[in-house]
């Protein structure tokens, strides 16, 4: 019985981490749009390449934030949550 409970905990943590990383779609689309527009802008005005590139990198970093929130949640679910939950389970049994 205990093995089953621990197995369910580990499996749910892994599933949760995988579901959390679906959020990676959003930043991917957003950054792709930003880079596409930056390429267009550089094609139109090659002399403004430097400032366009730095602005694009800044925008990409900000757009990436939601993906990184999901990443932090996934990392917590994989590396931290199973140990905590198993400890909790053990303490309730005893």
């Amino acid at each position: 019985m205990l093995e089953l409970a621990i197995g369910i905990i580990l499996g749910s943590c892994a599933l949760g981490a995988g579901i959390a990383m679906i959020a990676g779609i959003g930043p991917g689309i957003g950054e792709g749009n930003a880079v596409a527009k930056a390429c267009e802008a550089i094609g139109r005005q090659p002399e403004s390449k430097g400032s366009v590139t730095t602005t694009m990198l800044m925008g990409c970093a900000v757009a990436e934030t939601t993906g990184l929130y999901a990443l932090v949640i996934a990392i917590l679910l994989i590396f931290v949550a199973p140990g905590r939950l198993v400890d909790l389970l053990m303490s309730t049994i005893r």
């Binding site: 970093a61 990436e64 934030t65 990184l68 929130y69 990443l71 932090v72 990392i75």
Partner: peptide, 16 residues
């Protein structure tokens, strides 16, 4: 929160 997570998440994801 977002500044800390951005820096930490990028570096950590690279090392992972």
């Amino acid at each position: 929160v977002s500044m800390a997570f951005r820096h930490y998440g990028n570096v950590l994801s690279g090392s992972v």
